[in-house]
């Protein structure tokens, strides 16, 4: 039986995000926080010290006056497929890549809180717990039992809703199946998106919408030139959106990005 699990081909989970369908409502951000027991902001938290595993940035084409156009870009951990910068810098081995799923995992229990990984991550997708996690009285009843709350002083980030992956796996075993049903494993942000802008699935299965989205000529990845092989594909028919996401000059994307 154990040999059977070993034979199942490794999945390569990824996302394709259609920037042209995102209206910046923020459902993905709050759904993520609900699912992963991310606490509400401490009173002193700002956009630099908050916890947003997925974050929607507003970017614009830099034009002045009536020629200015904006777009919303959700940014989460890009689950680098090759040489993930956060993995190699961690002194604690608190970050690993699961060969079976391609998911870059963060282990808050091992984390020292040195934040080296945050400095290394080119996508600013890692967040540090600057405060003790606190919920208003009574609200702790609404926490998700499938995800452990983290403590102050550790780094956390998106892990493609790993609690849902566990649950889907247990359900597959209960039904006597080897593979999990794709309908059982959908991250919270994908499920929450009202405009259906995010697709999640196996990139190595050409039939999935995610893999099709990734192959589209209008799709691109963030900072592809760094060679980290991210598994989040973005899609936009607008040239300026595709260009800004490759950030030809350091700082250019940042100047025009707010959020």
């Amino acid at each position: 039986m154990i040999a059977e699990t070993k034979k199942t081909p490794a999945a390569r989970y990824g996302m394709s995000i259609d920037v042209d369908r995102c209206n910046g409502c923020g459902s993905c951000m709050v759904a993520c926080a609900v699912e992963n027991n991310v606490p509400p902001a401490a009173s002193g938290a700002t956009d630099r010290t908050g916890l947003t595993w997925i974050r929607v940035f507003r970017i614009d084409n830099g034009a002045e006056g009536s020629g200015r156009r904006s777009a919303f870009v959700p940014v989460l951990c890009q689950h680098c497929g090759k040489d993930a910068p956060c993995v190699s810098v961690c002194p604690q081995q608190a970050v690993d890549v699961d060969p079976a799923t391609g998911i870059v995992g963060q282990m808050p229990e091992r984390c020292l809180g040195c934040r080296y990984c945050m400095a290394a991550c080119p996508y600013h997708a890692r967040y540090f717990n600057w405060w003790d996690p606190t919920w208003p009285a009574g609200m702790e009843k609404t926490l998700n039992p499938d995800v452990a709350p983290r403590m102050r002083g550790v780094v956390e980030k998106c892990n493609f809703c790993h609690g849902r992956w566990h649950a889907a796996k247990a359900k597959a075993v209960a039904n006597g199946k080897n593979e999990i049903d794709p309908a059982d494993y959908i991250p919270a942000c994908v499920e929450a998106c009202p405009s259906g802008a995010i697709h999640f699935g196996k990139l190595n299965d050409p039939a999935t919408e995610t893999a099709q989205g990734a192959r589209d000529p209008d799709s691109f990845r963030m900072l592809e030139s760094l060679g980290t092989d991210p598994k989040i594909y973005y899609h936009s028919k607008k040239n300026w959106v595709r260009e800004i996401s490759s950030a030809p000059r350091p700082g250019l994307a940042k100047e025009n990005a707010r959020g």
């Binding site: 608190a94 690993d96 699961d98 609690g163 566990h166």
Partner: peptide, 13 residues
């Protein structure tokens, strides 16, 4: 022993 040691998140949440 069973070669099922994949990643931390297999057993952590």
């Amino acid at each position: 022993q069973s070669h099922l040691e994949h990643s931390c998140l297999d057993c952590h949440k």
